[in-house]
């Protein structure tokens, strides 16, 4: 259990990297949720746009993260540091989020929406009172995937100067210090698990019990 003593001996440094890691992830999460949920909702109403946007998100998702960090670093005005890191991670969150919102909204039972329309609901009432609440289970699955994803990829931001937990892993590799690598990896995993747990709790509050039986059985 050498990594525990590593953490104890370098607690100041580890804490700094951990907090920085978490703050990066949370910043990215807030921005991504706002941006990509709205994008998902918009494309759910424009089928032709949807194809293009989802293809784009797939392509971006397939680019190796390290090259994306490198490319954006070279863009004037971005450079090393937080802005570039946030931008790249937001791009990675695009695929799971946009896709899950789109699929969630699109998979709402046609006849439930027809019933709403037939009762006199306007298109925006149908969106907010039927489509979005019924899409939540799918959307949450996407959110939880992206939380874990962002937490993991945030380690790579160390290469453009962000002091995330990736720094422990990277330096551990260059110095051949296994404890350092393990310490970094374990804390990253714990952050991912914690955020996923919190999301799970929020999910239980947000998703109607009328829909929950579908995921439980």
């Amino acid at each position: 259990m050498g990594f525990i003593s590593f953490i104890q001996n370098n607690s100041g440094l580890v804490l700094e990297y951990t907090l920085n890691h978490i703050s990066l992830v949370l910043t990215v999460l807030v921005l991504s949720l706002g941006l990509w949920i709205i994008t998902g909702l918009i494309i759910s109403r424009h089928d032709r746009l949807a194809g293009a946007v989802i293809s784009l998100s797939n392509i971006l998702f397939c680019i190796p993260s390290i090259s994306l960090f490198g490319l954006f670093m070279a863009v004037p005005g971005l450079g090393l540091g937080r802005n570039t890191a946030v931008l790249v991670l937001v791009i990675y969150a695009m695929m799971p989020l946009v896709r899950s919102v789109y699929l969630g909204v699109k998979s709402v039972d046609y006849f439930v929406m027809e019933a709403g329309k037939g009762m006199g609901m306007t298109p925006s009432q149908i969106l907010f009172r039927i489509q979005i609440p019924m899409a939540w289970p799918t959307v949450f699955a996407g959110i939880r995937v992206s939380v874990v994803l962002i937490t993991g990829i945030a380690t790579m931001a160390t290469f453009i100067g962000e002091k995330t937990l990736g720094r422990l892993i990277h330096q551990g590799i260059t110095r051949g210090n296994a404890d350092m690598i393990i310490a970094g990896a374990v804390i990253v995993s714990l952050i991912a698990l914690l955020l996923d747990y919190i999301m799970g709790r929020i999910e239980k509050k947000v998703i109607s019990p009328g829909l929950r039986y579908r995921t439980n059985d």
């Binding site: 039972d109 019933a115 037939g118 609440p133 109607s208 829909l211």
Partner: peptide, 12 residues
């Protein structure tokens, strides 16, 4: 309007 497929809102 009573829709043929019943169409109750499952989340309500």
């Amino acid at each position: 309007y009573v829709i043929q497929q019943i169409g109750l809102l499952p989340h309500k």
